[in-house]
C-alpha cells in the first residue's frame, strides 16, 4: 500500500491555496469591480457621513422616527468584560433572543411591549413583528402593517398629516418577488431617511 502522506500533504496545501486564497481573493477583486457598493456593504451616506447600511437595521427610539423590531443583540459590559448588556441593533454581534415558546421571560417582554404599543395607538391590533425580536437582531424591515401602525405617532411628532406619512409608507412597501417569494416589507432606515428629507425641504 503506497504511503498516503505525500498525496495528503500536497493536495491539502494545493487545495488550501486554491479554495482558501485564490478563490476568495479573486472574488473580492471581481465583486469590487462589478458591484462595488454592494461588496462594501450597501452603505448609505448623507452629507458625506456614513449613516448606516441599507441592509442593516438600526435602533430608533424617538417618536418622530419609525421604530424597527425589538432587537436582542448584546455588547460586552463596559464595567465588566465577562458580562454582556443589552445593546439593540449591535451590528458587530448579531443574535436573536433564543427564548423558547414557553419562556416566562419572553412572555413578560412581549406583554410589556404590547402594553406600550397599545397605549400608543389604542384600538388597533398590534402586528406581531412589532413585538417579536428578529433572528439576527438586525432586521432592517417591518411588515407594512407594523409601519402603518406607527403612522399616527410619527405624524403627530413631525406635525405632518397622517395621510402624508401613510403615503410615504405605501411608497416604501416592496412586495413579494414575482408575487410569490418572500413577504411584503418596508425598509425602516429608508423610510426614516425619507421623513427627514421632508423636513429638510
Amino acid at each position: 500500500m503506497p504511503n498516503p502522506l505525500r498525496p495528503a500533504l500536497v493536495l491539502l496545501v494545493a487545495l488550501t491555496l486554491i479554495t482558501g486564497l485564490a478563490y476568495p481573493l479573486a472574488l473580492t477583486g471581481l465583486a469590487g469591480v462589478i458591484f462595488p457598493a454592494k461588496a462594501a456593504g450597501s452603505l448609505i451616506e448623507r452629507d458625506g457621513r456614513i449613516v448606516g447600511s441599507s441592509l442593516i437595521g438600526q435602533s430608533f427610539t424617538a417618536d418622530a422616527y419609525f421604530h424597527g423590531r425589538p432587537s436582542a443583540t448584546t455588547a460586552a459590559d463596559p464595567a465588566d468584560a465577562t458580562k454582556t448588556v443589552a445593546s439593540p441593533y449591535n451590528a458587530a454581534n448579531s443574535s436573536g433572543s433564543n427564548l423558547g415558546p414557553t419562556s416566562a421571560a419572553l412572555a413578560e417582554r412581549v406583554a410589556a411591549d404590547l402594553a406600550a404599543r397599545r397605549a400608543e395607538n389604542p384600538g388597533e391590533p398590534v402586528p406581531v413583528d412589532l413585538v417579536t425580536a428578529s433572528g439576527s437582531g438586525l432586521d432592517p424591515d417591518l411588515s407594512p402593517e407594523a409601519a402603518l401602525f406607527q403612522v399616527p405617532r410619527v405624524a403627530k411628532a413631525r406635525n405632518l398629516s397622517e395621510d402624508r406619512v401613510r403615503r410615504l409608507v405605501d411608497d416604501g412597501v416592496r412586495g413579494r418577488l414575482l408575487g410569490v417569494l418572500g413577504e411584503p416589507r418596508v425598509n425602516v432606515l429608508a423610510l426614516n431617511l425619507a421623513l427627514d428629507e421632508i423636513d429638510r425641504r
Binding site: P24, A40, I50, G52, Q58, A91
Partner: peptide
C-alpha cells in the same frame, strides 16, 4: 458583502455610533 476592509463605523440617524461588521 465581499471585502477585505474592516468593520464600518457609521453614525445612525439618532446620532449613535454603529459598528457594522463586514
Amino acid at each position: 458583502p465581499q471585502t477585505l476592509s474592516g468593520a464600518v463605523a457609521a453614525t445612525t440617524l439618532e446620532g449613535q455610533a454603529q459598528t457594522i461588521a463586514v
